[in-house]
């Protein structure tokens, strides 16, 4: 065998292989990451939508209750309730009221009040 014959060996070139493999893994990883992030976004979006819907429902329910409260506490409703439950509320008859002309110096404003209606006072 000739000594000068070159030994032909098909050695695996690890360097480029590793390079390309790394590149492929990175590209694949990026792709998977992209899909993962996309899925996450979609899931979070769905959750956002669900929460928004719940919030809307709660707000709507709140408004329904507000409307119902105002209906149940309205004057005609209270009047009906009064008639149904036969609560014995009658206006105070005039001959049952003793009227006194109050002394001028009572209270800080000089008025004697039996039942002050604070809301109406300026």
């Amino acid at each position: 065998m000739s000594t000068n014959r070159r030994k032909e060996v098909n050695q695996i070139q690890l360097g480029p292989l590793f390079k390309w493999l790394t590149l492929a893994v990175m590209i694949g990883g990026c792709g998977l990451l992209f899909v993962y992030v996309k899925n996450q976004q979609h899931t979070l979006g769905q959750e956002t939508r669900k929460v928004e819907l719940q919030m809307r429902e709660v707000r709507a329910y709140n408004e329904v209750l507000l409307a119902k409260i105002s209906q149940l506490s309205s004057r005609p409703a209270l009047q009906r309730k009064l008639e149904q439950t036969m609560v014995a509320l009658v206006p105070i008859q005039d001959n049952s009221i003793a009227r006194l002309v109050p002394p001028v110096t009572v209270g800080s404003d000089g008025l004697l009040r039996t039942a002050a209606n604070e809301r109406f006072r300026p």
């Binding site: 003793a98 009227r99 002050a116």
Partner: peptide, 22 residues
């Protein structure tokens, strides 16, 4: 006016026309 006066808690300004019943 009578009911309004009661609600507004107006102070009577004139002597009562009716006898006071106790």
């Amino acid at each position: 006016a009578e009911k309004t006066a009661r609600y507004l808690d107006l102070v009577p300004t004139a002597p009562s026309m009716l006898p006071i019943a106790f």
